[in-house]
């Protein structure tokens, strides 16, 4: 539990880096109270976030969105659930990325949605990009040959990071 709390706190403590990231720390769990009190969400803010009457986004999105956010919040705050969910999201993302480049965006979105904050979602998406590249190089075989494939390989490496990171922006929406 302490690890999770630390990560949440870390995210909250990065308010000086990015306003978006700063406010987003609580956005999934507490969209109103976005000033860094992520620990509240970790302590049980999942249900309150879903039920908070003054939350315009929640009201506008209706019950479905509310339930989704509620479940996401539950996953985000429970490491025992989140870790396997992360793994599952990564596998699903890999599968999607295997068939289309938009799968990289989806993969980043999936791992991002499971992250406690937008900032951490982007970091997770970048981690997903690393995973994609590892699997890619394992699949291709002659790593040195691929690395020499400049400038083509620049597209490959850049898309492995940029597309998941783009997908992770969804974390700031949901």
């Amino acid at each position: 539990m302490s690890g999770e709390d630390e990560r949440a706190s870390d995210g909250a403590g990065e308010a000086d880096v990015s306003d978006v990231a700063d406010r987003d720390v609580g956005s999934g769990s507490d969209p109103v109270d976005g000033d860094g009190r992520a620990s509240n969400a970790a302590d049980g803010g999942a249900s309150s976030a879903a039920e908070r009457p003054g939350d315009s986004a929640t009201v506008d999105d209706g019950r479905g969105t509310a339930r989704l956010e509620s479940r996401l919040a539950a996953v985000r705050t429970n490491p025992r659930v989140r870790r396997p969910a992360f793994a599952l999201a990564a596998v699903v993302g890999l599968g999607l990325a295997w068939v289309h480049w938009l799968g990289l965006v989806c993969g980043g979105a999936l791992v991002g949605l499971l992250s406690p904050s937008l900032r951490r979602g982007v970091v997770a998406a970048l981690g997903f990009g690393v995973l994609v590249l590892v699997v890619f190089f394992l699949r291709i075989g002659p790593v040195a040959l691929v690395i020499e494939m400049r400038p083509i390989v620049f597209v490959t490496v850049a898309s492995a990071f940029a597309l998941p990171a783009l997908g992770a922006l969804l974390r700031g929406v949901l």
């Binding site: 990325a97 480049w101 990289l104 590249l133 699949r139 597209v155 490959t156 898309s159 597309l163």
Partner: peptide
């Protein structure tokens, strides 16, 4: 991207 994206390219 269709040509050179990792895995699906």
């Amino acid at each position: 991207l269709e040509s050179f994206a990792p895995l699906s390219g």
